[in-house]
Simulated scan of single mutants.
Amino acid sequence: MNAPPIRTLLIDDEVLARLALRQALAAHTDVEIVGECGNAAEALQAITVLKPDLLFLDIRMPGMDGFKLLHRMKPDALPMVVFATAYGQHALRAFDANALDYVLKPIDQARFDQAMTRVRQHWLGLQAHAVSTPIAPMTPATPLHVQRISVRIGESIRVIATDDIDWIRADGNYVEIHVGGASYLHRETLRHLLDVLDPARFLRIHRATLVNVERIREIHPLFQGNAEVVLHNGTRLSLSRRFRTHARRVLGMA
């Protein structure tokens, strides 16, 4: 699938910071910069008119900061967001605000390119979801969800087929991906993985846990509506009461 350009809006009160973003984006030919804003009030108007796909957003700006800007927007109208800021202490809050990544200034091109890889992966997933073919239904050969996840290990990158994943657990700003007897730490949010992984295969059983339904062997009920999920390899995971109703439906439990 040939995805359309990623229409991008730069929001930062410093002209030089916006210039640095333009320079960092120059290597990414699938990005179209549709505008720049020097404060959040301008950005709200620009987002309404331009309807960008991606925001590069500073946090500390005069009048209204980046978090308040996102709070003012409707969740269903929120573009992809990458924070670009000089303040590293806001990273956790940024991911809680559903940002795809958090890039520190001054911008390091290699780190910036990693962020763009994450943006591009998410963008392709969104485009796949948006595909509508009323005349000819989509065939299984055209997957709606990501089939592989690339995980950096030292200087190399390990490509993991999603079918091979046993379970995933959130760990701060990272996730632990468990495959066979190995686990891989991957800089990604669980919320993003929920967007791009096949919900028919990956079941959320806890606030911080996804499991491949094909790996589930048994469910053991516990007290107060909780339960324990046992995988074929013997791994035991908690199924919280919050997600039990959905799990019962997906697993065909009476």
Rank of each mutant, 00 (worst) to 15 (best):
R120N: 09
I165R: 10
P137G: 03
R118D: 00
H178A: 11
A128M: 09
A110G: 00
A136Y: 15
A136S: 13
T162L: 05
N173V: 08
D195I: 00
M116N: 04
Y174Q: 07
V119P: 08
D164M: 08
Y174A: 09
R207N: 11
I149N: 06
I177C: 03
D113L: 10
H192K: 13
T189M: 08
T142H: 12
I157T: 14
D198G: 05
R169T: 13
S150D: 06
I107K: 11
R191H: 12
R118N: 01
I168E: 05
W167T: 06
R201A: 10
N173K: 08
D113H: 10
F202M: 06
A170T: 08
V175T: 11
D171G: 02
E176T: 07
L203A: 06
V196Y: 03
H178R: 13
H178W: 02
V196W: 07
F202L: 04
E176G: 04
H192Y: 01
A170D: 11
I165F: 13
G154L: 01
L144H: 06
Q147D: 11
P143A: 12
Y174M: 09
H129K: 13
Y174W: 12
V179F: 07
P140H: 08
A161I: 00
R118W: 00
G154V: 01
I157D: 09
I177N: 07
Q147Y: 02
T189S: 15
L190M: 15
M116A: 07
E188C: 12
Q147G: 09
V196F: 06
P134Q: 13
L197A: 04
Y174F: 15
M138I: 15
I165V: 14
D171M: 10
L203R: 09
R207V: 05
D198S: 06
R111K: 15
T117W: 05
